[in-house]
Every structure is written in structure tokens, then in C-alpha cells.
């Protein structure tokens, strides 16, 4: 399991990625992140909801309330245009980060 310190700056990116192909809600997003990371990363509940609050405040996602299949009220999130732009930005930032860090990585 990855320490959350390392990944902190990219939680928002992961959530935005999950919303690229359509709206989703809290648990589904968290489950898909776990699945996609092959169980190597589990996003904590509070990290997830902090990110929602932050992303919505910055206008990168929008939320709407819907009644789910079980009849429970749920909040669905949808990525906005500026959210997509931000996602792009973070992706190229990661490219550079990766290139830099790679230079300091070698087999021992």
C-alpha cells in the first residue's frame, strides 16, 4: 500500500480522471480508484470528501443530488470544462515530475 504523503498532490487528479467519462458518486469513485490501483491505493474517506469540497470550490466539478437505485439520496459529481483543463495541467506536471525523479532513481 502506498503512503498517502507521496500521493497527496495527485488525489484531485485521480478523482478528475474518474469523472472524465461521466458523472459518479463518492463510493463508486473510491471503489474504482482502489480497483484501478490494483488495491495498492485506498483513498481515505476524509481525503475523498476534502477533495470534493476543494474541487467544487475551485469550479472543477459540479454536484447534483439524485435518488440512487436503492432510493437513497446521493450526491453525484460531474467534471466541468475548467476541471478538464486543470486535469490536463496536472498530467503534464506529472510528466515533468516523473522525468525529474527518474533521474535520481537507479538500481542498487
Amino acid at each position: 500500500m502506498i503512503s498517502s504523503d507521496v500521493i497527496r498532490g495527485y488525489n484531485d487528479t485521480m478523482i478528475l480522471y474518474m469523472l472524465l467519462d461521466g458523472e459518479s458518486y463518492g463510493y463508486e469513485i473510491s471503489k474504482n480508484i482502489r480497483k484501478l490501483s490494483e488495491e495498492k491505493y485506498v483513498m481515505k474517506e476524509t481525503t475523498l470528501y476534502s477533495a470534493f469540497t476543494r474541487l467544487e470550490k475551485n469550479g472543477y466539478i459540479s454536484s447534483l443530488h439524485k435518488d440512487g437505485e436503492t432510493g437513497k439520496r446521493r450526491t453525484y459529481y460531474r467534471i466541468t470544462d475548467s476541471g478538464r483543463a486543470y486535469y490536463q495541467e496536472k498530467c503534464s506536471e506529472w510528466q515533468v515530475t516523473q522525468e525529474v525523479i527518474d533521474k535520481f532513481v537507479r538500481e542498487m
Binding site: Y27, S30, K31, E45, Y49, R73
Partner: peptide, 17 residues
Amino acid sequence: TELKREMLGTMEEKYEE
């Protein structure tokens, strides 16, 4: 209140699964 309700929903779903 909204946030708490939402988080409880998520936790319950995880628990059921």
C-alpha cells in the same frame, strides 16, 4: 449535515459490500 449524511452513505455501502 449534508456532508455527514453523504459520508455515512458511503461508509454503509462499503460495509455492505
